[in-house]
Nucleic acid binder design. Structure first.
Length: 137
DNA sequence: GCCAACGTTGGC
DNA sequence: GCCAACGTTGGC
């Protein structure tokens, strides 16, 4: 099983909205970046990811699961863009902020720190466990 | 609201 | 195939 991180501005699509979708999940559409798309194409059913609020909050707020494999993005006719569906699994007991992540030297190599603009990114198993712990899970 | 960093586009 | 120009992202 692989681990990922999905970024979203809460103004556009928030964790609360994702939670409200429940097990039905929601298409992670709107990605127009090849690296991010390739990451989604590499995802398997059951892969886990963090849900991160960018701009407002700047914190990891929840855990999601990939519930549909990569498929064409319904918001465009451009065949280049695919996306997966994700569903909320659980909220962190307390959010883990970007400041905390940057302050933790064990997380210095995270893509979130190194390449903050990539909107769908891989997370290593080690990073996954550390952030879960910081989040009280 | 600013701006640095980065990715994409398009002319050559 | 290079690279300048442009647009977007996201932290500050």
């Amino acid at each position: 099983m692989a681990y990922w991180l999905f970024k979203s501005e809460p103004d556009t699509w928030s964790w609360e909205q994702q939670l409200a979708k429940g097990d039905a999940g929601e298409e992670w559409h709107g990605v127009r970046n090849y690296q991010a798309r390739n990451n989604m194409r590499a995802m398997k059913l059951g892969d886990r990811g963090f849900f991160y609020h960018s701009n407002i909050g700047k914190e990891v707020v929840g855990v999601v699961e990939v519930c549909a494999l990569s498929h064409p993005d319904s918001t465009t006719d451009d065949p280049r863009w695919d996306c997966v569906d994700i569903k909320a699994v659980e909220a962190l007991r307390r959010p883990v902020s970007l400041d905390e992540i940057k302050a933790d030297e064990r997380l210095a190599e995270m893509v979130l720190v190194k390449n903050s603009r990539l909107s769908v990114q891989p997370v290593t198993e080690t990073e996954w466990k550390i952030i879960r712990e910081l989040g009280g899970l």
